[in-house]
Amino acid sequence: MNWLEDFMELAAVRNFSTAAAARHVTQPAFSRRIRALENWIGTELIDRSSYPVRLTGAGETFLESSRELMREIYRVRDECRQQARAGIEAVTFSALHTIALSIFPDLLTAIEERTGPFITRMHATDFYDCVESLALGRCDIAFCYSHELGPPVLQTGQFASKIIRIDPFYLVSKADQEGNPIIDPASWPKNKDIPLVAYSSDCFLGKVQSQLMLDMQKAGSSFRATYENSMSEAIKRMILAGKGIGWLPESAAVREIEQNELCIIDRKPTEVSLNVLAIRRQGVGSATQERFWSNLRGL
């Protein structure tokens, strides 16, 4: 379905960058998905030699069939949803892994103490898939981070949002028996790279991390990545194993900091405050969704 909707968007605007922005994905990811569709069909659908791009003869044929297929798919989906609403309604969420693991359970408990229980479904994923899930109607509410150093987040137009929490983003190290960092950039030899447990450069926290690293590099620090992952939980495990320093949201590390397993390195220069956003589409949702949203308190 994603491939079909990508193709129809590209056919409408005839520009990869514009279509990717409309589909809330990066242009490289969008291009890969169009190429995956063409591989599945077995022939090129887009003539990339012209500007703006054009559909090939096969592309023109496939476009009409795609529209018919999507209309039928959404008709069947709506019919199934109407049948499901006759029973118990669930609220469907999409969230970044860190938020799904470290913030959402306590948030849900706090809301249920005021309103009674909910049936919930959670899809833990990366930033771009989280935003795309909301835009395409695959979830009712999305939870993601927002910060000026990261990629932009949907907060206007057809979307409504609430900042529900501030989550500080700390540079941390494994702590020794005295509670001091085993790796401290302030005392690290200037001629040696600091071992870093790093986020993947294409994830949200990776983009924030990259800017913080640049700031430290300007001050004379240099880094050597020893491990890379897009999930905070994986980053934390490797820092605890002594593989390097790294950045973690407070929500993912608070227990280990309190138990002196991790310690924060030099709070002020290396810390940023991440907004935790709850985002939904404008308009009236199900009664269950509206009950959850109305009791979701913003800062």
Rank of each mutant, 00 (worst) to 15 (best):
V53Y: 05
V53E: 04
V53L: 10
R54D: 03
L55M: 12
L55A: 04
L55P: 01
L55Q: 03
T56G: 07
T56Y: 07
T56L: 06
A58N: 08
G59F: 07
G59Y: 04
G59N: 09
T61S: 14
T61N: 10
T61A: 11
F62Y: 14
F62G: 03
F62H: 03
L63E: 13
E64Q: 13
S66H: 08
R67Q: 15
L69G: 04
L69E: 12
L69N: 08
R71W: 02
E72M: 06
E72V: 02
E72P: 00
I73M: 11
Y74A: 05
Y74V: 06
Y74M: 09
R75P: 03
R75N: 14
V76I: 12
V76G: 00
R77M: 13
R77S: 11
R77D: 10
C80Q: 12
R81V: 14
R81M: 15
Q82P: 00
Q83A: 14
Q83D: 04
A84G: 10
R85L: 15
R85N: 15
G87A: 14
E89V: 11
E89C: 06
A90S: 15
A90M: 12
A90N: 11
A90Y: 09
V91E: 02
V91S: 04
T92I: 15
S94I: 02
S94M: 05
A95G: 07
H97Y: 02
I99Q: 01
I99R: 00
A100D: 01
L101T: 13
L101V: 14
S102R: 00
S102I: 00
I103Y: 03
I103W: 00
F104V: 03
D106Q: 13
D106A: 12
D106I: 02
L107C: 06
T109R: 08
T109M: 04
T109P: 00
A110G: 01
I111C: 03
E112V: 01
E113H: 08
R114M: 11
T115R: 05
T115Q: 04
T115Y: 04
G116R: 02
P117D: 05
P117Y: 06
T120K: 06
R121M: 12
R121Q: 13
H123Y: 05
A124W: 04
D126E: 10
D126C: 02
D126F: 02
F127T: 03
F127H: 05
V131M: 15
V131F: 00
E132L: 06
A135E: 08
A135G: 03
D140V: 08
D140F: 07
D140I: 10
I141H: 11
I141R: 10
